[in-house]
């Protein structure tokens, strides 16, 4: 167990951060964690929205002569407070973990343990927002040269507020930690067409790959090829088309040399060759996988003994 976890940790850096969420159904979901930048943007949007609401009400009150110049500032502060505190809690409750700013940024609060968001969690994380975001915010606004210690404390606090999310993998702020939540990018389900399902008969007729020729690559190379073939469909300019053709030729050449495919491939057949190779390779790898032989990448043969031991 311990060893495997360490191995995972070594692999992680570099890849886009994805947190695992375990719903009650027991099938883990990997969801991209929202970074500090996008969350800050959502926060600023929300602050602007509440500010605008405050100003509207304030103007209305001013017109109705409910507030005078001497109490203006205090009433403004009160209104801002009275609007923003329920705004976050109620909007996150009603829209399942999304405020308007979060909706705009397509991010969402989720419960860290994979269960549904509780009222308690939402109230807690948004109350902590008062201490984490608004208190240092107002402190920053009231920075003053005359009180260097207070300014330093305020700066230290703001620094801490920003540092805490950066120091943990799930980018949780203090309120998230206490509430057991984190923020994810909302995944977009877009089903692209299956490359292997396109006219398989025709492609397989022209190019035949033998079993030993398909033993060289693993899932990583397969999926890289898949991404390349998908990009093939996009419309491009003439100059890009030329470079794309060159890339295709280079890839075809490399694959041919690697798997020992003797027959030369004419240039107009490059794309079809790659498609056929993709289909054949995927069929082969999936079959191996069914027999318990998962091949992560092309190095599967060299470190095969090691993974067998780990499995």
């Amino acid at each position: 167990m311990i060893f495997r976890r360490r191995k995972d940790k070594k692999k992680k850096p570099g890849i886009a951060e994805a947190g695992t969420l375990m719903p009650p159904e027991g099938v883990a979901l990997n969801l991209a964690i929202a970074g500090v930048g996008v969350r800050l943007a959502a926060q600023i949007t929300d602050v602007l929205i509440t500010l605008v609401a405050m100003v509207c009400i304030l103007l209305l009150m001013g017109l109705l002569k409910l507030t005078g110049p001497q109490t203006f500032f205090a009433v403004a502060m009160l209104l801002f407070f009275v609007i923003r505190v329920p705004y976050y809690v109620v909007s996150e409750l009603a829209w399942n973990g999304q405020t308007l700013g979060k909706k705009l940024m397509k991010i969402k609060v989720v419960s860290h343990d994979g269960r549904s968001l509780t009222t308690h969690a939402l109230v807690l994380r948004n109350l902590m927002k008062e201490a984490e975001v608004f208190l240092p915010g107002t402190l920053l606004l009231s920075l003053d040269e005359a009180t260097p210690t207070a300014s330093l404390i305020a700066l230290g606090w703001v620094g801490m507020v920003f540092a805490i999310p950066l120091l943990n993998r799930y980018r949780m702020r203090l309120g998230d930690m206490m509430a057991g939540t984190h923020v994810i990018h909302l995944p977009q389900p877009i089903l692209l067409k299956d490359l292997a399902a396109e006219k398989p008969v025709e492609a397989e007729k022209d190019f035949v790959f033998l079993s030993h020729q398909l033993d060289h690559y693993g899932a990583f190379e397969l999926q890289t090829l898949e991404a390349l073939l998908r990009a093939e469909g996009n419309p491009v300019t003439d100059s890009a088309l030329l470079s794309r053709k060159r890339t295709l030729a280079a890839i075809v050449e490399k694959i041919r040399r690697k798997i020992g495919y003797a027959e030369p491939v004419p240039e107009h057949d490059h794309a079809r060759f790659l498609k056929a190779f993709y289909a054949a390779q995927r069929g082969h790898l999936e079959q191996r996988q069914l027999f318990g032989d998962r091949r992560a990448d092309k190095h599967h043969a060299t470190n095969g003994t090691e993974t067998e031991g780990a499995e």
């Binding site: 089903l191 299956d194 490359l195 898949e226 991404a227 995927r282 999936e286 996988q289």
Partner: peptide
Amino acid sequence: REISLDRAL
């Protein structure tokens, strides 16, 4: 996750 290597899927 067990049987498919189609990343899109």
